[in-house]
Design a protein around this nucleic acid. Structure first.
Length: 218
DNA sequence: CACCAGGCAAGTA
DNA sequence: TACTTGCATGGT
């Protein structure tokens, strides 16, 4: 392993020792991961979990449930997640693609080769790289690293990424320097989110009590 | 009150 | 290619 890989591994171990395993994604099925991945776009998870609870209570948290639900009714059930008209359409777009190309089987999509499945997901309007990778890693157990706003913030503050860089650049930091193991990528991303939510807020550039330190000593 | 939250697409120059 | 804007609720 190279020096960047060692540095990433050190950070991972510090976070894992501090927070423990996160056991992501918080969901009961692959479909629920997919729904959550869309609903959490630029949105606090608290608001998303309320929307998912409504879908569960209404009995539509299944592929056929979503497929048969009019988009207007779906939008009404996910209001708490914000951007509800947009997200209802995006979920419908995903369901439509899976119906058209995989006979309504999310499992069939997830059984495809990783980068083929990724390309299919990215053809859907409303599914960008983070949403696609979240579904592939957390619903499909594929070894791909999920990058989000927190990843950029934490790793730029520790001088492992530039202040601003694109998705692929950030993803390559991890995938070019760590073994491609789904379990590692799963826990690492979850630990980054945990760390950022607890210590690495936008307004707190020093992050004094963070286990990674307030500067880039790690 | 302002700001933020596990993005993405479409429009403009 | 490189900005800018719309989408929207709910907690701090």
């Amino acid at each position: 392993m190279n020096s960047t890989g060692s540095r990433l591994w050190d950070i991972y171990n510090v976070l894992y020792d501090y927070f423990g395993p996160q056991h992501w994604w918080p969901a009961q099925s692959a479909l629920e991961v997919l729904v959550g991945a869309v609903l959490t776009q630029n949105t606090n998870w608290r608001n998303v979990s309320k929307a998912i609870a409504v879908l569960r209570e209404e009995g539509v948290l299944s592929f056929t449930g979503l497929a048969s639900l009019p988009v207007e009714q779906l939008a009404g059930m996910i209001k708490s997640s914000g951007y509800y008209n947009l997200k209802a359409r995006r979920l419908k777009n995903l369901v439509q693609m899976i119906d058209d190309r995989y006979d309504g089987s999310l499992e069939s999509l997830l059984a495809e080769e990783l980068y083929h499945a990724r390309e299919q997901l990215l053809t859907v309007k409303g599914v960008g790289p983070e949403t696609a990778d979240s579904i592939l890693l957390y619903a499909g157990n594929h070894p791909i690293f999920v990058v989000d706003a927190y990843t950029h913030r934490v790793f730029s503050r520790h001088s492992l990424l530039p202040e601003e860089c694109d998705y692929q650049t950030a993803q390559e930091l991890f995938m070019d320097n760590l073994p491609h193991e789904a379990e590692l990528f799963n826990e690492f991303h979850a630990l980054i989110v945990k760390t950022a939510n607890k210590f690495c807020k936008k307004k707190n550039p020093l992050c004094e009590h963070c286990p990674l330190g307030g500067d880039d000593r790690l």
